[in-house]
């Protein structure tokens, strides 16, 4: 197993991201969380297909592409989950009769993949300057067979886990937007995971801030004609 993906059990893996690599989309991100990586492209708010048009708000569309194979029911479920999450987060009422579309491409799944997809989507929406009610951050954790909680697990840890839980928090009141918790666990265990993930979500919100700061200071330098940028 790769050593680079080993990490302390109560901390998130190293995150890095690249914004605005692609020319056509309004916003895009490639986010690494450890070795897990996803690319998200955002178009919107833009034109909407007639049958998906909503009169009072924007339609959020999510397309998830796995690395190989045809999309099945499991992929549909991921799409649905991410779509519902962002329908709440995006201020859809601002853009009636238009669409915001997210395309998520799996690059590498080394554990906590759903969390990576959700966080990458949030960064891409920030990059596209889509108005949002609040930002969201997703954190995964697992409970292993001895009852230990491991935050942001890698693939190996995920496979041997008794249960795997993903929580999505908003940055306003740290309330829970999305839960996807599978396995078998007692209520106290779930509460412990919840508290741990909530604490860790702060680091992700800080990471968003840092990434956007870097991107915006770069574009400021370009405006000034700074040769360093």
């Amino acid at each position: 197993m790769m050593d680079s993906d080993e990490h302390r059990e109560d901390r998130l893996r190293q995150m890095t991201c690249q914004l605005g690599q692609m020319l056509r989309p309004d916003g895009d991100t490639t986010l690494f969380m450890g070795d897990t990586c996803a690319t998200v492209a955002v178009y919107g708010p833009g034109e909407v297909k007639m049958n998906k048009e909503l009169l009072d708000k924007a339609t959020v569309e999510v397309v998830y592409r796995s690395k190989s194979g045809l999309p099945g029911c499991a992929e549909k479920m991921i799409e649905r989950l991410i779509c519902n999450t962002y329908q709440t987060a995006i201020l859809t009422q601002l853009h009636p009769r238009s669409s915001v579309s997210l395309t998520i491409q799996e690059i590498q799944n080394s554990g906590s993949f759903l969390a990576c997809c959700i966080n990458a989507s949030c960064l891409a929406l920030l990059d596209a300057s889509v108005s949002m009610k609040f930002l969201v951050a997703a954190v995964s954790c697992i409970i292993d067979n001895d009852g230990n909680i491991v935050l942001d697990p890698n693939r190996k840890q995920e496979k041997t886990a008794r249960s795997s839980l993903t929580f999505v928090f908003d940055n306003k009141d740290k309330k829970i937007v999305t839960i996807n918790a599978k396995g078998d666990y007692r209520i106290e265990e779930l509460n412990r995971c919840l508290a741990l993930c909530k604490e860790a979500s702060v680091a992700i919100f800080d990471f968003y801030r840092e990434s956007m700061k870097k991107k915006l200071s770069k574009s400021m330098n370009t405006l000034k004609g700074d040769p360093e940028s």
């Binding site: 779509c83 999450t85 962002y86 999305t178 996807n180 599978k182």
Partner: peptide, 12 residues
């Protein structure tokens, strides 16, 4: 015990 909790988005 609980074996699944599923909240796909919606109001926090």
């Amino acid at each position: 015990k609980i074996c699944m909790v599923y909240k796909p988005g919606g109001n926090p």
